[in-house]
């Protein structure tokens, strides 16, 4: 089945064998946008978070067909030159360690800001898993957003 997805402002034509294929794997394997990460596949860890029509979504369980006609933003499309305030805060506070979960964290924070949340109000929106334990720095980074 051939579908067109709008990702980071660009249309991508993809062929999937099954419309229930999660958006995560379409982004990663078919389009080649690998910044969105696989962590658990069951909507527990948050590493796969993207923004779809302004909402944070877990792409590991988001059917690709449901994403057709919507505006998808991935970590690669959040800003040019890491200029988004969340990215700037992450660098200023030296948040990432291994960094694998951070695209999901950053996208969830960006979505919360789009929804009008600021500072510590953002934290309930980033209940993701970070095995490195960067949470304290995330709290610090978010505090001034």
């Amino acid at each position: 089945m051939q579908l067109t997805l709008n990702v980071n402002g660009q249309n991508h034509s993809v062929t999937v064998s099954d419309g229930s294929m999660p958006l995560l794997w379409v982004l990663r394997d078919l389009i080649g946008l690998t910044g969105t990460k696989y962590g658990c596949g069951i909507e527990v860890c948050g590493a796969c978070t993207v923004i779809i029509d302004g909402q944070r979504e877990h792409s590991c369980v988001f059917d690709v067909t449901s994403a057709v006609g919507k505006k998808i933003i991935t970590i690669e499309g959040l800003s040019a030159n890491r200029s988004h305030p969340v990215q700037q805060a992450w660098i200023a506070h030296q948040v990432p360690q291994c960094g694998y979960c951070q695209p999901g964290m950053i996208m969830a924070c960006a979505a919360a800001m789009m929804a009008g949340h600021h500072g510590p109000e953002i934290l309930p929106e980033v209940q993701h898993i970070c095995v490195c334990g960067t949470y304290q720095r995330i709290r610090d980074a978010v505090s001034n957003l």
């Binding site: 394997d29 970590i75 690669e76 990215q87 660098i91 030296q94 990432p96 960094g99 951070q102 950053i106």
Partner: peptide, 27 residues
């Protein structure tokens, strides 16, 4: 000092093993 690897870990450009792409690859 600021760590060299951190900027690439904020924009999706850091390449982990799971992100490797090879032309003609299968999965």
């Amino acid at each position: 000092v600021q760590r060299v690897d951190i900027p690439s870990k904020t924009d999706g450009s850091a390449i982990y093993g799971i992100d490797v792409r090879i032309p003609g690859m299968v999965f």
